[in-house]
Nucleic acid binder design. Structure first.
Lengths: 133, 133
DNA sequence: TATAGTAGGTACCTAGAGGAAAGTAACTAC
DNA sequence: GTAGTTACTTTCCTCTAGGTACCTACTATA
């Protein structure tokens, strides 16, 4: 948070070091835990904090809070606070977040057709490594 | 979207921990430094180690080696070793890696149309946070 | 009094990713 | 015999993301 002097697009353009126009998107959309969160909100609709916490079992509340804040700041998730007792907070996908749906579908499609190729390549690589010694 | 009984959503149901069928793909394709490497190989063709090292300026040789090994193991990159003196190694995108091209294009397209929305959302969020105290 | 439910905040600590810099092999050129 | 080249490898070190555990406020319930 301390060193955000410029946005992600500026990084891609002004930073010749990256030489990769998709890096900024990757940082926003595919940073840790964000894809399960976005997928969950996209698939199961508006949810409360505990619902997300239970669905994504291995996430801790601290990290879930951090990721949700980040996604809210990036405009991908909308947070609605109801000042009741006990307090109730609901999270849902924003319009901008929903625009990622075809991208996620594309990714899922690639997974179904190519993930086994990756696994086969891994087995092949590991086996060859064993015989090579 | 919520009630997809077949396809990738079904995986989400059977694996309660992840609750996200695209997580494995993200780990493979979008782990750190992989997208600049794949982009570079995809855009500029077959390249030697030092060429990649110079193009992706901020990467260290150790990490570049690690990432290239991982990508080779996953079958996304093909490594060709020429036992000359000094040694020459060439890296190129594999068939499987090339199948990611439309996905990357999709991502780049999303970036061009929506990245500014993200930045505007960030500014809005930060400004509101300041006024809130 | 104590406990549960709710959405976090905060302090502390660890593991692991990643960076810096030097080393290695193998041969050539000088 | 020393420097140069390439593609790493190794060692050491730092930094931070993330985990654990406890804390907040408020009310209902036993």
């Amino acid at each position: 948070m301390a060193t955000e002097t410029s946005g992600p697009a500026a990084d891609a353009m002004t930073d010749p070091e990256l030489a990769c126009p998709i890096s900024p998107v990757v940082d926003i959309v595919f940073s840790r835990w964000t894809s399960p969160i976005l997928w969950s909100l996209q698939t199961f609709g508006r949810q409360r904090f505990v619902e997300l916490e239970r669905r994504i079992k291995s996430i801790t509340p601290k990290v879930l809070t951090q990721r949700l804040r980040q996604l809210e700041r990036d405009g991908l998730v909308v947070r609605t606070y109801h000042p009741e007792v006990p307090p109730r907070v609901e999270y849902e996908i924003s319009e901008l977040g929903r625009s990622l749906a075809p991208l996620f579908a594309h990714l899922a499609e690639w997974a179904t057709t190519n993930l086994e190729h990756v696994e086969r390549a891994r087995r092949h690589y590991d086996d060859a490594g064993v015989t090579r010694g």
